[in-house]
Design a protein around this nucleic acid. Structure first.
Lengths: 189, 189
DNA sequence: GGGATTTGCCTAAACACATTAGGCAATTGC
DNA sequence: GCAATTGCCTAATGTGTTTAGGCAAATCCC
């Protein structure tokens, strides 16, 4: 009997593929087993449960996203950095909708702390170095940017902006303009 | 044999309750049947499928949200209206997390068009009457506000802002200030 | 190189949810 | 009150999750 060479990591990556193809919540231990041409029970030596599998997929997605973000931010500042990071999220979500959905999975606190999640917050904070904000406004701005990026990408992916003028690409660029203007003229408390 | 008096509408409302209690994706035809003390198969005379049930729950949530929004906007304008509508989404999501999640369900185009979804876009647009924006900037702003509201509420509900200073309530208010300032000084293209 | 140990995938089985077909009793229409 | 309809039921099938226990392949070790 030839062994399939399963590992938690390979399963997570194959699961990420599967998520992009069929949607994150259609990801199933059974379907993954089929893809590896292996019986379902075999996967349970490598992942603890269906939920464990999904968590691992989420961690893969969070890390890929953070890596892309870091690469995009390198050598950029100000509005340039803002646009670059925003596009990382949007492009990733369009290329990998299943993975992007996975990245939204609610992780338990310890797992979240050990994930690439905190890197995301750091990257957003890094953008703000190009603007003149001090605490607590910096944190408010981090949360605002996170909300806009995530909210826009989610709504767009859900089809909210399709088939209606103006084109979503135009809005996206104008939102960058708007956020840049806002950060340069952040209102006093 | 006493009849339970099932109707699609009662099932949708009970499903919404269930969603708030156990989470939208734990909503199951079987659990609903249990709650009505009825056999599972019986529900299939009233809803076509599990997905049909979830769609109905989503429609209930969208409508409740739109009703609350309309009530909140009545008699308000400008920043007052902005804050009021924003709080409707946030409060609803906190009171009814399962319903709020349901409202994000991707509906097929015809169902979406017949839902309360379009009312939401209209309400956001109504807010902008208090500001001096013309098309296409008005649409850009509608999309931005939708993204911020949805994004913030989602991230907050996922626990993103908890246990870290400053308090999420403070950020929320400062974001209203920021959006108001932005809309009053919308950058030219 | 070959025996002992570990590891990896398997069979088998229990349980939950979704869904359909067909039946009988309660309700409704007249 | 009888016929037609409606509402819930039993029964059965298919799919997914998960655990227990088994056998063979890989690895370790002398």
């Amino acid at each position: 009997m030839v062994r399939a060479g399963l590992t938690p990591d390979r399963l997570a990556r194959a699961g990420a593929e599967l998520a992009d193809e069929v949607g994150f919540d259609q990801v199933t231990v059974s379907e993954l087993a089929r893809r590896f041409d292996v019986k379902v029970a075999s996967l349970y030596s490598h992942v603890r449960s269906s939920h464990d599998l999904k968590t691992r997929i989420a961690l893969v997605a969070l890390e890929e996203l953070a890596d892309r973000g870091a690469a995009a931010l390198a050598g950029r500042a100000g509005k340039d950095a803002l646009t670059a990071l925003a596009n990382v999220y949007r492009d990733y979500a369009r290329e990998h909708p299943g993975r992007y959905a996975a990245a939204q999975l609610r992780l338990d606190p310890e797992t979240a702390a050990a994930s690439a999640g905190p890197r995301h917050a750091q990257m957003t904070r890094a953008i703000l170095r190009g603007y003149d904000l001090t605490e607590p406004d910096q944190t408010h701005a981090v949360r605002l940017l996170g909300s806009v990026f995530h909210g826009y990408v989610t709504l767009e992916l859900a089809g909210g902006f399709s088939h209606s003028d103006p084109d979503s690409d135009v809005t996206w660029n104008r939102i960058h303009d708007a956020l840049d203007a806002l950060l340069r003229n952040w209102p006093a408390a």
